[in-house]
Write a protein that binds this DNA or RNA. Structure first.
Length: 943
RNA sequence: GCUGAAGUGGUGGAAUUGGUAGACACGUUGGACUUAAAAUCCAAUGGCCUGUAAGGCCGUGCGGGUUCAAGUCCCGCCUUCAGUACCA
């Protein structure tokens, strides 16, 4: 019987599904382990071979942990709200729910073919009302919360109301909007209900506010900062402009410090932690208030260098700064307004690209230096960003290169406040080697001391204080789109009201078109049944609005990251209709032990999810405040595009080696038309696309050789490889092993089928090891005996166990594939057919190649599936050491340890000791710590 | 510019973290089996030198250093990739 992977794989995939082999229990005497993949967005293109890389790794680990005796939770689901389905709906009129359902079915089919051990009974879909009911519920919890800086946690909004009615808001230490005005308890108690709501809205963790947002006209929606790459939208690459709009926001800024601190407690890749740290962008310094001369106005600036305050020779405001209009003098008005207009016209992108040109204009107004009381001219310049700090800087040209360049350009004085430093050529920004001069009470101090003193003096004046500034902005949470979670919000008198949790979910209404309305409202503005009846607590027709108690519902939907910010917790109890998850479930599973996914989510999903987790933790809804203990970023699998060279202006194509003799242009062709030696299938190409029907080819050595280019796997480059094809040709076990064999998990690497035969023939050899080739035709008959294993057999097995276990624990799945190959080669050479060896070997291999392992396991006469039970193979006590340590004594003293292979002969030991003595002489009497001996090989001295 | 990761045969990549560099696989070459092909199996395969062998020399981006011993540690460069960017 030969290795018929198609039958074997179909058989076991059916068996696992029929027997619900991988269903995890919510209570078990076994220790728990939670292995999670980032759930996919089900796109219309289906999976390519890059997608399963991380899933295969996590599946190996999950299967390994089951063998180790853990109760493993390994779920999968779909992040199924999102833009592509909606764009497709706009083009075709097809309801996104239908497209999404079809895509999910296709994904599922592809995933099933690879033999993953997912617990599908726990599947979640973010677009399923049963799921987004709880997304809406969490939104309500956020709305009903505020952030208490004293206790450093989120609290219920009722507590804040109690505080306000008792003492007003003058003494509360909270994170809130900057424009809150102060009020006393008495004033609070006299506020109308609407006034109270308006005030509270400024404190809530999700709030409605007019903010400057990133508006993408082509997509017709706002985008969060992390959804913009290089000034254009991440999806589609459309331009983005700044625009003021009333939007829901999430007060993630309240958690900035805790999000930073938490990074020290989790085992995540350093580059990912670094990019979160940069994104949060903490900087320590001081805020300084400058009085504006001849105006009742102040300018607050943030600086990281309060020690250089005596070096201030001008101030710069962002063109968008609200004070600009107030303080410009008549003489400068025309010039300033022209400048502001010119900057407003330039897109964000142009401004970013054009950093070298210095531009700015004087406002005519002066501020007053807090210490010297000297006038400081106020300029505006677009090098100051409205969105960072206060949108204003105190310019210290001698200590900051941008201020220096600006001052040089506009002939502003550059006072030197650094002792013994030459600033005639450039600014001096080195904090560590600073001695301050020409600075009154700061003279002679270093950076640290001067900073402390300057802050103290500013506090004495009431014109500043030490401050920590974060780059992290609150996250905009509204999208003007159809295919997202509806908000559980209706409006009474313009104020947002939450729908009671017991009436959730609020389901997406039907619309006849998925575009914004003619009046510019989001697509939900087209829904005819989209009003909230507070009497019946149901969604009713819009035309009933203002009759009795019927109110308009929110027209925006939630962004893509809403559902993905807590889905990992929902897997723990996915079918619970009473709670987001039960206390028992969350206390049992607690958090994700291993999370595998791409690094592109560093400042999006992974930051938002940590934020929500901390929020849920504050309310005691989850027991830990970091949701994933360990995270691994799998590298991307890249495509290898195939390129043909067309001679310009003709339909002739020239082979790669001859292309330099002609003027050619490069065209990408489908990679399936290329064989392993880069030879093009000419007939295939002619039939592939009409433009190649009459193509002529200039060959070299009778072949057409294509060029190759490594780039992202994408339909438009025709370089996509479908895992289904690999499963059909070689089988899922080969695919799994090969994807691991390709290289280290975390590294990006191009897909290349050249080496796949090596892995496939390993599986064939493995199969043969359990069969006697002399009988039963080509593949032989199954033949495993009860004979005692030889020492060599045991050695091979035990070193394999040791190595594979180390590899899995270190996530070096690529090297354990090699280990298996060596083991099978050795055992074949040893003609081993002992059950004592061959049975445990299957357990080792089963996480990697589960189908073949199951089949051989069954042939060995086992009734139970190899996939579920815990086996002692991985337990230490079962291991016979493949090496032993021998103490060696010299001059009667025991000094050294010889680490020797299991069955070394006397001669070999003697040789080892002699070699050791020889080395001893070379060491001039130094003592090595131990000697490693491998039979028949050189002696190693470890010292 | 800043931050991070990495540079090892023709190729993908190993190397117990300071101890036989190049495991394993692909590819290539030669051979066996075949009328032939596929499949399978065996052997060789970093470079150079000595006719072969035995053996020797050089070899982990470049230049130094520490060490009995460096792909690995230290200093200074070069290159590539990724992220980020007027962040005050």
């Amino acid at each position: 019987m030969s290795y018929d992977f198609r039958d074997i794989e179909a058989k076991w995939q059916k068996y696992w599904a029929d027997n619900a082999t991988f269903t995890a229990e919510n209570n078990s005497i076994k220790p728990k382990y939670y292995v999670l993949d980032m759930f996919p967005y089900p796109s219309g293109a289906g999976l390519h071979v890059g997608h399963p890389l991380g899933y295969i790794a996590s599946d190996i680990y999950a299967r390994y942990k089951r063998h180790k005796g853990f109760n493993v939770l390994h779920p999968q689901g779909y992040d199924s709200f999102g833009l592509p389905a909606e764009q497709y709906a706009i083009q075709t009129g097809q309801h996104p729910a239908i497209t999404t359902k079809d895509n999910i079915a296709r994904y599922r089919e592809q995933l099933d073919k690879i033999g993953f051990s997912f617990d599908w009974s726990r599947e979640v879909r973010t677009s399923d009302p049963k799921f987004y009911k709880w997304t809406q519920w969490i939104f309500i919890q956020l709305f009903n919360s505020w952030y208490d800086n004293n206790e450093d946690r989120a609290r219920k909004i009722e507590d804040l109301e109690t505080i306000f009615s008792a003492e007003g808001n003058t003494n509360v230490n909270v994170v809130c909007d900057e424009d809150v005005t102060e009020f006393t308890a008495e004033e609070w108690n006299n506020f109308s209900s609407k006034e109270k709501q308006e005030v509270l809205l400024k404190y809530r963790l999700t709030y409605l506010a007019e903010t400057e947002v990133n508006w993408c006209p082509q997509l017709g929606t706002v985008l969060a900062n992390d959804e913009i790459v290089n000034g254009v939208s991440e999806r589609g690459g459309y331009p983005v402009v700044r625009k003021k709009m009333t939007q829901w926001s999430m007060r993630i800024s309240a958690y900035a410090q805790r999000l930073l601190d938490g990074l020290d407690t989790i085992d995540w890749p350093q580059p990912l932690k670094d990019s979160q740290t940069n994104w949060i962008g903490r900087s320590e310094g001081a805020s300084v208030t400058f009085n504006v001369k001849d105006h009742d106005a102040t300018i607050e600036v943030f600086t990281t260098r309060p020690d250089t305050i005596f070096g201030v020779s001008f101030m710069t405001l962002a063109p968008e700064h609200e004070l600009v209009q107030k303080i410009i003098t008549k003489a400068q008005k025309a010039e300033v307004e022209a400048y502001i207009e010119a900057t407003a016209k330039r897109s964000e992108r142009e401004r970013m690209a054009d950093v070298k040109n210095i531009s700015g204009v004087f406002t005519g107004a002066y501020a007053e230096h807090p210490f010297t009381k000297e006038p400081v001219p106020i300029w505006i310049g677009d090098y100051v960003l409205a969105g960072y700090g206060t949108g204003a800087v105190m310019a210290v040209p001698c200590g900051d290169q941008r201020d220096y360049d600006f001052a040089k350009h506009f002939d502003i004085p550059i006072p030197n406040i650094f002792e013994g430093i030459d600033i005639s050529e450039e600014a001096f920004a080195d904090k560590d080697n600073t001695v301050i001069a020409n600075s009154d009470f700061l003279n002679g101090l270093n950076y640290k001391k001067a900073t402390k003193r300057a802050i103290y003096e500013l506090e004495q004046l009431g014109q500043g204080e030490g401050k920590i500034n974060y780059r992290l902005r609150d996250a905009v949470f509204s999208r003007q789109r159809y295919w997202g979670e509806p908000f559980p919000v209706y409006y009474v008198d313009g104020m947002p009201q939450m729908i009671e949790a017991k009436h959730l979910p609020i389901e997406l209404p039907e619309v006849e078109k998925y575009l914004p309305t003619e009046t510019g409202e989001p697509p939900l503005g087209r829904a005819t049944v989209w009003a909230w009846d507070t009497g019946s607590n149901t969604v009713v027709d819009n035309d009933k609005i203002d009759h009795k108690a019927v109110f308009p519902l929110e027209l925006n939907t939630m962004p893509g990251w809403a559902g993905s910010s807590y889905y990992f917790n929902r897997y723990m109890d996915p079918n619970n209709e009473e709670e987001v998850f039960s206390k028992d479930a969350i206390n049992y599973w607690k958090e994700v032990d291993l999370y595998i996914g791409g690094s592109e989510h560093a400042t999006g999903h992974l930051l938002y999810a940590r934020f929500w987790q901390k929020f849920l933790f504050d309310h005691g809804i989850v027991p830990v405040d970091e949701f994933a203990k360990k995270l691994i970023n799998q590298g991307m699998i890249l495509g290898t595009s195939a390129i043909v060279y067309r001679i310009s202006g003709t339909n002739q194509y020239v082979s790669k080696g001859l292309k330099d003799q002609y003027e050619t242009e490069e065209l990408r062709v489908d990679v399936s038309l290329i064989n392993n030696s880069n030879e093009l299938n000419l007939e295939g190409l002619r039939n592939w696309q009409p433009q190649y029907k009459d193509a002529e080819f200039i060959l070299e050595e009778n072949k057409y050789i294509v060029g190759r280019e490594v780039e992202k796997m994408s339909k438009r480059w025709f370089n996509v490889v479908n895992p289904d094809d690999i499963c059909n040709d070689y089988g899922a076990d080969t695919l799994r092993l090969y994807e691991m064999f390709l290289g280290p998990l975390e590294q990006a690497k191009p897909w290349n089928t050249a080496g796949i035969t090596g892995v496939h023939s390993f599986l064939k050899k493995l199969w043969k090891l359990y069969h006697s080739p002399l009988e039963g035709g080509q593949g032989g008959v199954f033949s495993v005996s009860e004979t005692e294993p030889t020492k060599d057999n045991l050695k091979t097995l035990h070193k394999t166990i040791k190595k594979v276990e180390e590899d899995i624990e270190n996530f070096s799945f690529n090297t354990s594939v090699s280990t298996f190959m060596i083991a099978v080669n050795e055992l074949t050479a040893q003609k081993c057919n002992s059950r004592t060896i061959l049975e445990p070997l299957l357990v080792l291999i089963s996480p990697y190649a589960p189908h073949i392992a199951e089949e051989l396991w069954q042939k060995l006469g086992n009734k139970e599936s190899i996939s579920t039970a815990a086996f002692p193979v991985f337990e230490e006590k079962h291991l016979v050491e493949s090496t032993k340590q021998y103490p060696i004594s010299f001059n009667g003293k025991m000094r050294f340890t010889l680490e020797l292979s299991l069955d070394l002969s006397k001669d070999e030991i003697e040789a080892a000791v002699m070699a050791h003595e020889k080395t001893q002489q070379q060491l001039n009497g130094r003592e090595p710590k131990k000697v490693i001996v491998v039979p028949g090989k050189i002696v190693n001295v470890v010292g």
